[in-house]
């Protein structure tokens, strides 16, 4: 697994608080046994209702850094939402806050979700709207997001930052390492050992 130390590319400004995962990926697109093709259905209903939706705007085609407001990805735990974003080319998200499940689901796909204050996000959104061609860089180690002359301070949860830096953002292999320790913990849990009389 490769380290994710920084993400560089153009920004995709998506305004709005509490954009839930039903909005990002409506449930009818979960009627499938794979994640293939989900990128085509990102914000499908929002895009249909609003021709000026950022995901309809060809100026943002190829953008890799999604810029959002508060509580992005709230609601359903469906990984289909970050899977769709990842498959559309999004490599990092910078926003005011996220639901925890969404943030974790994104991390395991190698997508860091940076948080910054409202004023910084507003500046970044405005820049991406005014000058979509602007190259941005989001650095995992320092949390600095720079774009043109703009530089904002953003944060990642420390454990996730280290995981991205060390290439351990997908924990599956680590969880299987030293498996005797897992069995030892399981063996000490009374509900697994059948509530023996010595507990």
């Amino acid at each position: 697994m490769a380290a994710v130390t920084s993400v560089t590319g153009r920004g995709l400004p998506l305004r709005g608080d509490d954009l839930d995962t039903d909005r990002i990926m409506p449930a009818r697109f979960l009627r499938a046994v794979t994640f293939e093709g989900l990128e085509r259905h990102l914000f499908e209903d929002d895009r249909a209702a609003d021709p000026s939706h950022a995901f309809n705007n060809p100026r943002y085609t190829g953008a890799t850094i999604l810029i959002v407001n508060k509580n992005f990805g709230c609601g359903s735990s469906r990984e289909h939402a970050p899977q769709g974003l990842a498959r559309s080319g999004i490599r990092a998200i910078v926003g005011e806050s996220y639901s925890e499940i969404f943030l974790g689901n994104s991390a395991v796909l190698g997508i860091p979700c940076f948080t910054a204050d409202r004023a910084s996000i507003e500046a970044l959104l405005t820049l991406a709207e005014r000058a979509p061609e602007t190259q941005m860089t989001a650095r995992v180690d320092t949390g600095v997001v720079s774009a043109g002359g703009l530089s904002i301070q953003a944060d990642l949860p420390p454990a996730l930052r280290d995981a991205f830096m060390s290439g351990q953002w997908n924990p599956a292999a680590m969880l299987l390492d030293k498996y005797d320790e897992v069995e030892a913990v399981a063996g000490r849990l009374p509900y697994i050992s059948g509530f023996p009389s010595d507990t």
Partner: peptide, 13 residues
């Protein structure tokens, strides 16, 4: 009771 160890990433297993 369910913690296995601290992962090198800093998260809890």
């Amino acid at each position: 009771a369910h913690t296995v160890r601290a992962l090198s990433s800093g998260q809890t297993q």
